[in-house]
Design a protein around this nucleic acid. Sequence first.
DNA 1: GCAATTTGACCTAG
DNA 2: CTAGGTCAAATTGC
Length: 247
Amino acid sequence: MEDTTATLATELDGLLAMARELEERVGGDQGAPGAARELCAELAASVDRAVRLAGSGPRGGNAGGRARVNGQHRGGRKAGAVRAQVRVASMQDLGSLDDGLSWRKYGQKDILGAPYPRAYFRCTHRHSQGCQATKQVQRAAADPLLFDVVYHGAHTCAQATAVLVGTDQQPPASLGQEQQQQQSSPAEASEGMQWPAEPFTPPSFPSSPAGCYTPGNSWCQLAGNYGYAAGGGLGADMDFDELFWNM
DNA sequence: GCAATTTGACCTAG
DNA sequence: CTAGGTCAAATTGC
């Protein structure tokens, strides 16, 4: 069964690659109707979901995919995290990872089993306002254009409040179990930043006002959200399913 | 000059 | 012992 699963995953991966290429082509061609782009994004998201389903069979296969949520020893974070996946249509759209808040990168680490390192961010106002929010960003193994963003801790800084109120969004992690969606438009996303195509180093995401939340054409969209059912039967001590790394 | 990023070391948990 | 997460000094860009 794993054989079938693997084959299926491979096929789907190929599909995903094609979908992505299609996305890029359509995206590059400004004459393409919005419907076509939307369809491409949908296609990619759908295939992506299928890839995950195919690869999520044996849950134990995530060698090294053990995420801790406590972080007791120094930061004193509380259990509770929000995991989101952010898809970018191209390397120029990485700004979509910006959530309108000020994040400061404080570390990067190679993760076992993951082809890309994980970047660690914390709120810029941590010292000035004691904001405990942190987030981790890691590129998905199966899809370089897909990013896993995990929020920890609650945003208590003034900026976060302003952003969240202004965009009708809930504090990323203050709720602990809410799923977060990020959307952005290409125009807002591309702020001239570019990520290297390979040994990727997650750059800092430009802090922009809440504008990046502009709903509407979500060319860069959150591709599939999973993780925690809000208020579900999940215990306080949550664990992440590393659905991506076990293929 | 200031603020943010980079990078290696250190610490803790499993 | 290994891996993940954080800190802090050095570096770089604005």
